[in-house]
Simulated scan of single mutants.
Amino acid sequence: MSNTPYPDRPHPKPVGKRPIPAFFGNLWRQSVVAFAWPLTSAIVWVASRVSMPKWMGSDLREFAVRLWSLAWLAFVWVLLWGDVTWGNVVIGIVFGVAVLAILPLPRVPVEGRLHPLAALNLLISMLWNFLISAAQVAWAAVRPGEPPLGCVVRVHLAIKSDLVLTLAVDYLNLVPGTMVVEIDHVHRILYVHVFDVRTQKQVDHFRKQMAYVERQFIRAFERDSEWHPSPYHGIDDDYHHVPFADRQRVADGERAPRRRRRRRKERRRS
């Protein structure tokens, strides 16, 4: 006679990873921590002891933006000449420095922090949407029947930074079939022209795609835990006109896929 109270029932499967995957998983975590901690300490040490000159922006993030502007101007100069040579590169850098010094561009507030992996995921999703949208536009142009019907969809975003909002608008304009026709800067509302939309289901699908893009931009550039308002805007967060409820909506949308994956795992285990 078995000692178990219910001998006919199968024994539950042990919860957890197998020894070999668990070993490599712990090794990966320890390696990341061992690398990230000295790197973070070095960055904090440099930021606390090294001060940037005023002409370089007086801030590491501002200096990075100016360095990117200089690189972009030099790149445009080389494109205009159409020949990649050391002379064109050097002259492009000289002209870029002259433009930034004599004709300075408006200051761009840098208020978040870049996450490379999230930004890479955003870039991959943009390329994928580009391919899918290009195929849909091409098919709509050659298919028989009535001409495509477009519409303007109003989209409310919870993006705080003006720079990140501009990147989101560029994202939409680069994808075939979508074009931002108007921006309500105060209320963070975009009016987007969508190509070939005939049903409410297609409109809802586009809104879901916009919610996904919104979450990806916030993850890549302006997470709430790392938000630093720019001194050019002041420290009043209400300047950006993004209520807390909108950011909470984005956070709930971020947690929803994780909850669904957790439920699927629980059902498989049961």
Rank of each mutant, 00 (worst) to 15 (best):
G150C: 05
W81P: 03
W139D: 10
Q200H: 12
T199F: 07
V97R: 01
R269E: 11
R107L: 02
A47P: 01
Y212H: 13
V152G: 02
N121W: 11
H241I: 06
A36N: 14
W77I: 02
P106N: 00
L172I: 11
H205C: 05
Q209V: 09
Y6S: 10
W72I: 08
R61K: 15
R207W: 01
W128V: 14
R49W: 09
H187D: 15
W45A: 13
D224G: 03
E62S: 05
L60M: 11
P38R: 03
P144K: 10
N3E: 14
V44E: 11
S58Y: 01
R18Q: 14
Y191V: 01
M126S: 09
G234L: 10
L163A: 06
D170F: 07
F130E: 03
G177W: 02
A71N: 13
G92M: 04
A245Q: 14
P14N: 08
W139H: 11
E62I: 04
H11N: 14
R18A: 13
N3R: 13
D59C: 05
W37F: 14
I189H: 05
L60I: 14
L80F: 11
D162V: 08
D170W: 10
V180T: 11
V175D: 03
S69P: 00
N3W: 10
A141T: 13
V197Q: 05
P10R: 02
Y212K: 12
F221R: 02
F35C: 13
V152N: 04
E62C: 02
I20C: 07
S41K: 09
V186K: 10
L103A: 06
R29T: 15
I159D: 04
G57C: 01
V137D: 03
P257G: 05
D238L: 12
R259C: 06
G234Q: 07
A251R: 12
N121F: 05
A64D: 05
R61Q: 12
A119F: 08
L39W: 11
L122P: 14
L123T: 13
L100C: 01
A22E: 09
V33D: 07
A34I: 10
A220I: 04
N129I: 08
D236A: 06
T178H: 02
K17F: 13
D246L: 14
D237E: 15
A98R: 02
W77T: 02
L105T: 00
L73G: 00
P116T: 06
L122S: 06
A74Y: 00
R255P: 01
W55C: 00
F217I: 07
R267E: 15
V32H: 10
R262M: 12
V137W: 08
R143E: 02
T85A: 02
V97G: 08
R188Q: 08
R219A: 13
D252E: 15
F221G: 01
A158T: 03
Q30N: 15
F63C: 08
R49T: 12
Y232A: 12
Y171T: 14
P106H: 00
G16P: 13
P231I: 09
V203S: 01
L103Q: 03
W81R: 15
R66K: 04
F244C: 09
L80N: 08
P243N: 05
W139Q: 12
L117H: 06
W55I: 00
G16F: 03
Y232L: 15
A158V: 05
A245F: 14
V152R: 05
